[in-house]
Design a protein around this nucleic acid. Structure first.
Lengths: 182, 182
DNA sequence: CTTCGTCGGTTAGCCCCCTAACTATAAGGG
DNA sequence: CCCTTATAGTTAGGGGGCTAACCGACGAAG
């Protein structure tokens, strides 16, 4: 599922030529824009492929990670609305994700005791076992993909990217231990 | 359609803590990995939203750009297989894309004269008009999104990203004028 | 206590991606 | 000439996003 439907990026000279025709086009910005989408596509595909060998998709894995309390290895029940919030998808989408996860026995829905509108989603034993199988190779993947960059270069990259998405990082710093990283 | 289903990224200290539990986890690599996906998600969403105001999706726009000969502003017929190749999707996917584009009158299928298996896809006048409306704002978008970075920083970013995806840029340098940039 | 707005979850319908299988044509070898 | 193989495009079915509309439950205001 390509973000950037263009396998080979245009050369910088091509961008400059087009910029002479379209004054709105900023060659250096467009070049960076395309490279960023292209690289993200590559990383995302690698992650997706790695997860698919365990029979799971990125979205499903993200939900499992949210439900996984890594401190004591016990599940953290959450409502679909909370899960949708942290994942950045709609509640309708989360309904579908939890549906397939429940169908595969990785997750269990239970009515919330306090509010009869709400459900709580729980990781099953099977779900925990799947995470235990997936996590090491998943953690290893980022290291392999970023291997061409030195520590210094990675820091530079993060710094530049952070300038593009200013307010996306958690500004508070609380809740460190319970954050997940799909 | 989020690439990274995690709106706020974990803090670096959280990654380090998790790395003590999972030796496979490389904190700096994971941090860069997550930032890259997050930033790409942001850029992609902005692009998608900008295009949607013109009633078109990213995939459809990419196909139109491929069919658009920017030199003489005349359509460049291509087969669905060629389009799928440069876009990096399957032929089946391209069938669907061309279906909707043809339904909306932006594109026209014609049988290829030389090989009765093949079709050629042509941009219609309506498709050209849509591109003419969309392109300026689309070109402007990359400039706005990358505005927080200086020229120098953009070059650095491209250089680092290129190290992650080594062989993705067209190595030959031919065919400059006919390349498109969605 | 009733009513009305709000909120959680689901459903329906659409788009776009995939794989696998199919049809029709082309092309090459006995 | 037929038979096999390869190729172009489509179809069928599934996953996973989205919006819009809906239902039931909550809660506050009258």
């Amino acid at each position: 599922m390509p973000y950037l439907m263009l396998k080979k990026l245009p050369h910088y000279e091509c961008l400059e030529a087009l910029a002479r025709q379209y004054p709105e086009l900023d060659p250096s910005a467009t070049d960076a824009f395309l490279h960023l989408l292209r690289a993200a596509d590559e990383l995302f595909s690698a992650r997706e492929q790695s997860l698919s060998t365990h029979g799971i998709s990125c979205g499903r894995f993200a939900v499992l990670m949210q439900l996984w309390d890594k401190q004591n290895n016990r599940p953290t029940p959450q409502t679909p609305a909370e899960l949708a919030e942290v994942a950045g998808v709609t509640r309708a989408t989360m309904t579908g994700l939890v549906d397939t996860l429940e169908r595969d026995g990785l997750v269990r829905r239970e009515p919330a005791p306090t509010d009869r509108r709400m459900m709580t989603v729980h990781l099953t034993e099977q779900g925990r076992e799947l995470l235990a199988r997936v996590l090491p190779s998943h953690f290893r993947l980022a290291g392999e993909l970023l291997a061409p960059l030195t520590e210094e270069e990675r820091r530079t990259l993060v710094r530049l990217l952070a300038k593009i998405l200013p307010a996306q990082t958690d500004p508070v710093g609380l809740d460190l231990a319970s954050r997940s990283l799909p």
